[in-house]
Design a binder for these strands. Structure first.
Lengths: 200, 200
DNA sequence: AACGTTAGGTGGTCAGACCAGTTTGGTTTG
DNA sequence: CAAACCAAACTGGTCTGACCACCTAACGTT
């Protein structure tokens, strides 16, 4: 053995996934079976699986088995967040970055929102069930950029660890809704600056 | 034990690194010692270490020990790419997101660049050693947002897996330099759109 | 048919053993 | 004395076998 076993095992596991035609949600062979098929000790197999689990590529359920996860649920960004945000410098930048990303998402949403989505948002506002997170989840969906959505979620999770919940007056959502309807980007951003950025 | 041992071990290892004041290049305690200090089996410790190695946070050298690595050489990307490259939606999002983040960074750099930094950039341009990555590393530094810098690096690593190197005419850097000097945000973004976004 | 019970499978953890490298310090040798 | 040598004591890498906790499904009883 010159190279690392667990790296080879990773490749072999990948091949098995391909050959068996497994896709997201499917169950992959048990640790003991992989151990046999790959002619490796169970501990080596586990070391490989642990890396995959850590990255969110697989999910292990005690007593049940090991399953492939959707790309969408990759914790890639979360993990990076975990290790990146340990940095004190990074924490200081968290708020700013979150705002910047949020403005980016507002921009996308303003371009891409559909009439149906606007109606949905109006519903939230009229029922007064709207809050900052609900609003931005809508924005992210309307923006149609999944990667950006993931990044925002991480930032938001970390933000909540350090800050109180953001509470904005209903008028912010109403005005912004109008600006989104008119596709008036400048107004959308101005409202964000007025209600969010400046208030801190 | 309700939660996963190796996650706890990861946290404890991180604490040890902090308490012992270890930084990049330093040696961390041996697996057997960690096993004792953390009151866990060696295999559990190894599973945790494997995840860290997979992410490129540590480096293990047989016979020598385990060392802390700089964050940045993550072969994480290569291995992960193997599993992700198929997802076309993610691929599309990646390009867009990278551009968006880059525009964000340009915006920050335009606001915050110092005269000294401008001189440095001019040097790169005059020596013709400038390329897309060099340019954006400068932009990120000038933007003074560490978190955004990290996010961009990750996106860029993924991007390079799937695309050719971006090569832009020298004029782009020259014009952008001027716009940055004048703090003319609109021009900076217009140049980016003209030379980068539209070319694809 | 509905309800327990049980046996087998699965991941989670551990201890101990051995292999394969590196480092270290003491011994031998020139 | 210095250089070369070598063995012991590390280090990570791997395997085995043994438990535990948990889930599922099949089996039986009511």
């Amino acid at each position: 053995m010159t190279s690392k076993m667990y790296v080879e095992i990773l490749q072999k596991i990948y091949r098995i996934i391909e050959e068996d035609g497994l896709s997201a949600g499917d169950k992959i062979p048990s640790e003991r079976e992989l151990s046999e098929r790959l002619k490796a000790g169970r501990s080596s197999v586990r070391e490989a699986l642990r890396s995959l689990e850590f990255l969110g590529i697989i999910e292990t359920r005690r007593g049940e088995g090991t399953y492939l996860k959707e790309f969408g649920e990759h914790q890639l960004i979360d993990l990076l967040g975990m290790f990146i945000l340990q940095d004190k410098k990074a924490k200081a930048d968290l708020v700013e970055t979150k705002w910047l990303i949020e403005q980016l998402c507002l921009l996308l949403a303003c371009e891409r929102r559909t009439e149906a989505q606007l109606d949905e948002l109006k519903g939230f506002i009229q029922q007064k069930t709207i809050d900052y997170e609900t609003f931005f989840k809508w924005v992210l969906k309307a923006g149609h950029n999944y990667l950006l959505e993931r990044i925002w979620r991480v930032l938001n999770d970390f933000f909540r660890l350090q800050h109180e919940d953001v509470s904005l007056p209903l008028t912010f959502y109403e005005y912004t809704w109008t600006a989104l309807k008119e596709r008036h980007i400048a107004n959308v951003l101005a409202l964000f600056t007025e209600y969010v950025t400046k208030r801190s």
